[in-house]
Every structure is written in structure tokens, then in C-alpha cells.
């Protein structure tokens, strides 16, 4: 099996605090993998290792291997290149205070693409893939901040897709949104897995069950269980998983 993303005996410390403990897991291409677990369990931390966003946090250090298409993320791939291949969508919609068009074009522009026709094509492609095109196609020059929260988040997804990553990491992408916007994002995630490999961190177990093919349960920095979503939610191997999904803690 050619895995898209792998973590091998991965450890991470913030200062003296160990946030990830010896984690090994492999993620298949064109799948949706959900990371679940109570706050502080390390799920977001692990997610951020895959595009090295933890580098921005002072005092973080890692041990172990993180692989993208078999290449070591921290050694063999340049960080800027890595982040173009492994895009990220954040918890709170964070569009730039620019126009809708310029938000999506940002990733292309920083790659030196300035050809108007090409930009327009790519922006349209990205917005269509993010299921936002029909809502904004007549207002591409409006400020992105004029959109609703749900639209802003889909815009951020479009912005991430524009540079055509192969992996999209999503850090609780719907936690700041209303139920209708959340449903739209979930439909979108389901669609996107045809073209991209998706890893999503979520607090919402129903969401994990709805959108993901595989689910990983973390607790206190350890990977407790990683299995087919259906199996993990109906017949977990571990007692801790059982307790968490039935709401006994977390």
C-alpha cells in the first residue's frame, strides 16, 4: 500500500511538555481521516506536524518521522514546498482583508503566477471545488469580509485548493459555524476526497462518523485506536474509546 501520509514513532514536545507520544499511523490517499479525542489530546498537534505549522510555535521540537509520499517532511522537503502540497484550513475562517478573487489568487500569486487568464481560470476552478462559485461569481471583487461565516470558510477552502495540494488538513473547520453552514462543509469534504486526501480534526463525533472513512482516537498525546470509522464507532477495541464515544468523558 502506498500511503499518502505517515507518522512513525512520532513524538513532540512543547518546552518540557510532551504533546505527542510515540505515534505511528498511516493515511491512505483519497480518504477522509478524522482525528477525535478530548481537548489537549494532541490531535491538532499531530495534524499541524504534517505541514510543519508547529514550527511557528517557539520551543516545539519533534522526534520520529513524518512522511509525505514516503519523503521525510522535516528533512527531504523544503517547508514552503511542503505547505503547498499539504494545505490547511483553520478553525476560524481567516480570509485576508482583500477581495474574494484576491483571496483565492493569493497562493497562485506567491508562486509567481500573474497571468490574468490563468488566474481567473484557477480561481473559478477552486471556487467551484469549494462549492462557493455560484454564490460569489458575480461579486468576485467584493471584500471577502462581506461574506457570511460559512461562506468565508468555504472561501478559505477554495484558497487552499487553489495551489492544488494533494493533502488538505482541516482543523475543526466547522466548529465556528451554524448547522446549515456545517452541513455544507461536510458535503464538501465528502466531495473533495475524490481529488484530495483529507485529514480532519473534529470535536464533533457525529461529524467524524458522517464524513470520514477512518477515524483515529487520541487521548493524552497517545493514539489509542485507529480503525475504519464504522468499526471504531460501533465496535471499538479499546475501553477508552468506548467510554469517549459514549460520552462518559471528554
Amino acid at each position: 500500500m502506498d500511503y499518502k501520509l505517515e507518522a512513525k514513532n512520532a513524538n513532540l514536545w512543547y518546552g518540557n511538555k510532551q504533546a505527542l507520544k510515540d505515534i505511528t499511523l498511516s493515511i491512505e490517499p483519497n480518504s477522509v481521516t478524522a482525528f477525535i479525542g478530548p481537548s489537549g489530546c494532541g490531535k491538532s498537534t499531530l495534524l499541524r506536524c504534517f505541514n510543519r505549522m508547529n514550527d511557528l510555535i517557539e520551543g516545539s521540537r519533534i522526534k520520529g518521522e513524518f512522511l509525505l509520499d514516503k519523503a521525510n517532511i522535516y528533512k527531504d522537503i523544503e517547508v514552503y514546498d511542503l505547505r503547498k502540497r499539504v494545505g490547511m484550513v483553520f478553525q476560524k475562517p481567516n480570509p485576508f482583508p482583500k477581495t474574494i478573487f484576491e483571496n483565492v489568487a493569493y497562493g497562485l500569486r506567491i508562486n509567481g503566477i500573474n497571468d490574468k487568464k490563468l488566474l481567473a481560470e484557477k480561481v473559478e476552478w477552486s471556487l467551484k471545488n469549494a462549492a462557493l462559485w455560484d454564490e460569489v461569481k458575480d461579486n468576485l471583487n467584493n471584500s471577502a469580509l462581506s461574506l457570511s461565516g460559512g461562506q468565508q470558510q468555504r472561501l478559505c477552502i477554495a484558497r487552499t485548493l487553489a495551489v492544488e495540494p494533494t493533502v488538505v488538513l482541516m482543523d475543526e473547520p466547522a466548529s465556528a459555524l451554524d448547522p446549515i453552514s456545517t452541513a455544507k462543509i461536510e458535503d464538501l469534504i465528502y466531495e473533495l476526497k475524490n481529488k484530495f486526501t483529507i485529514v480532519i480534526v473534529t470535536h464533533n463525533m457525529q461529524q467524524a462518523a458522517r464524513v470520514s472513512t477512518k477515524t483515529a482516537f487520541f487521548y493524552l498525546g497517545e493514539l489509542i485506536e485507529f480503525d475504519e470509522t464504522k468499526k471504531l464507532f460501533t465496535n471499538p477495541e479499546e475501553e477508552k474509546t468506548q467510554n469517549y464515544i459514549t460520552g462518559r468523558f471528554g
Binding site: 505549522m53 505547505r83 490547511m88 483553520f90 485576508f96 482583508p97
Partner: peptide
């Protein structure tokens, strides 16, 4: 400028220079 904008820019593979001049200064 909210750090979320910084993250958005770095998350797309922008360099410090690009982030500073294309996102932070305009914002």
C-alpha cells in the same frame, strides 16, 4: 493584525517576506 492571517499565509507556503508584504502590511 490577527495571527490567524499570518497562519493562513504561512499555511499556503508563503515566505516571511511574502507574508509581511502581501498580507501584514496591507492589513
Amino acid at each position: 493584525v490577527p495571527s490567524s492571517l499570518r497562519e493562513a499565509s504561512y499555511g499556503m507556503g508563503a515566505t516571511k517576506f511574502q507574508t509581511a508584504f502581501k498580507v501584514l502590511v496591507p492589513a
